[in-house]
Nucleic acid binder design. Structure first.
Length: 428
RNA sequence: GGGGGAGUACCAGAGUGGCCAAAUGGGACAGACUGUAAAUCUGUUGGCGCACGCCUUCGGUGGUUCGAAUCCAUCCUCCCCCA
């Protein structure tokens, strides 16, 4: 299978250096992607790079994931208008470990195959490097003029921003040096990344050309966009993380399920390994029966299974059916405690004393005892607009009281704000 | 150093003595419609015992006035022009 061809039909190529296809056609190639360890979990923005590595590996090449322990300490100025905050070493170490764990579930690091994936941390070689050594061996090879011509740098010199520190200016050289190092030690001749990395990648290939007199290659993928122009991978509640502690598998599943038709058509090519025929068939199915959303369902299934597990996917589907499948108050009451908790895992939960329940006024209770809503006025207005439900039944009267008879399984209250926002109240 | 302008709710932006809890647009939230979509339409968007009542808000402070976002003084911040 041809890697470049594969990415091309999936719409995952933004730019590539000349000679890339030829290099990869000569047998097993090696390429790396850099990942900034700014948090102790990857988010779905990282997923694109990981998918590229996955394809790379599937096409018989050797992928390397580079955790940027050193570069993370500097901060990539690309796409940033302000100087970045630096991370301390302890945090970085912790983040690196967590990211390693996540990556190892997505790529094959274990097998004996020649092209098993590999994980490196640039801190391991950067920490040995002396400042003097660096400016002698690397700094000499590149002119400031060349570095200034990069978009990521130019932007910081013009217009808004607040200037750029020497540290960030040097970033591209440091990242370029990674490439040189991997080229020399692992025969890694290619770097992959998002389109914002193009400048950094070409600095690397340039360094390799000047220092080693050798050819190296780069490929970038377009930044993922949503059809409505808003930012991909963010919701009101923030980033979508791969770590279940930050984004529950249910939320994760829901995120993909809720993509628009248009986006789903491109996402399914980018975020799943499904083949061309299968995807074309799904798209045809979607066009024939859009309300059934076969595309979104399949997309959500594939990605959730890949990132979490089939078991988590099944739970997410089950939870979705209970939450959105037109279930009634009776169905809700029919649930046993265990299922209930599983379904509402990750839903904001409030604990109250059981003695506070009986006879309490609904509005007062929801603001004072279990602060689901920030103010009584807002809650009243929502109730008037028909936007609040208790145990799947619309709250009609703002003055209604609650009692222990409202408790599900003797200790839970399920409050809904609108259709999608659930809150669980536990009486203890 | 000289001259001019501006700071209003989440954002943008009206208002320049009482009719201002403050136009309008965007955003956000909710309702209807739907496919848990998009588009559209509707409502809400300072707090409180909420249908015309009270309290806190228009950069800070202090004043004038029966009454101030609006007038005066002063301080702070930002922008523009000239040197």
């Amino acid at each position: 299978m041809n890697f470049v061809e594969e990415l091309r039909w999936r719409g995952m190529i933004h730019d590539l250096t000349p000679g890339t296809e030829e290099y990869l056609s000569k047998g097993m190639g090696t390429a790396y992607v850099g990942i900034d360890p700014t948090a102790d979990s990857l988010h779905i923005g990282h997923l694109v790079s990981v998918m590229i590595l996955k394809h790379f590996q599937q096409c018989g090449h050797k992928p390397i994931a580079l955790v940027g322990g050193a570069t993370g300490m500097i901060g990539d100025p690309s796409g940033k208008s302000l100087e970045r905050n630096l991370l301390d070493e302890t945090t970085l170490r912790h983040n690196q470990e967590a990211i390693k764990k996540q990556l190892s579930r997505l790529l094959d690091f274990e097998s004996d195959a020649k092209n098993a994936a590999c994980l490196v941390n640039n801190y391991d070689w950067m920490k040995e490097l002396s400042f003097l050594g660096f400016i002698r061996d690397i700094g000499k090879l590149i002119t400031v003029n060349y570095m200034m011509a990069k978009d990521s740098v130019k932007k910081r010199f013009e217009g808004d921003g607040e200037g750029m520190s020497f540290t960030e200016f040097t970033y591209q050289l440091v990242q370029g040096y990674d490439f040189v190092h991997l080229f020399e030690t692992m025969e890694c001749k290619m770097q992959l990344g998002g389109s914002d990395q193009w400048g950094n990648i070409t600095t690397g290939t340039e360094l390799i050309r000047r220092k080693l007199g050798a050819e190296a290659y780069g490929l970038t993928c377009p930044l993922i966009k949503k059809a409505d122009g808003t930012k991909f991978g963010k919701t009101e509640s923030g980033n979508i993380w791969l770590d279940a502690r930050y984004t529950s598998p249910y939320k994760f599943y829901q995120f993909w399920l809720n993509t628009s038709d248009e986006d789903a058509k491109s996402y399914i090519r980018i975020f799943t390994m499904l083949g061309r025929e299968e995807i074309d068939a799904l798209i045809a199915e979607q066009d024939a029966a859009p309300h059934l959303r076969p595309l979104q369902k399949r997309l959500a299934e594939e990605v959730t299974c890949m990132v979490h597990s089939r078991g988590e996917w099944e739970k997410a589907v089950e939870a979705s059916q209970i939450l959105f499948g037109g279930s009634t108050a009776e169905a809700l009451r029919g649930l046993d405690e265990e299922t209930l908790l599983a379904v509402f895992e990750g839903v904001p939960t409030f604990k109250v004393a059981a003695s506070d329940i009986d006879g309490a006024n609904f509005v007062d209770f929801m603001v004072e005892k279990a602060p689901v809503f920030p103010s009584k006025g807002e809650l009243r207005k929502l109730i008037q607009g028909g936007g609040v439900s208790l145990n799947k039944e619309k709250v009609e009267d703002a003055a209604r009281a609650i009692s222990s008879a409202d408790l599900i399984a003797g200790k839970y209250l399920l409050v809904q704000k609108g259709k999608k926002n659930y809150y669980l109240i536990v009486a203890e």
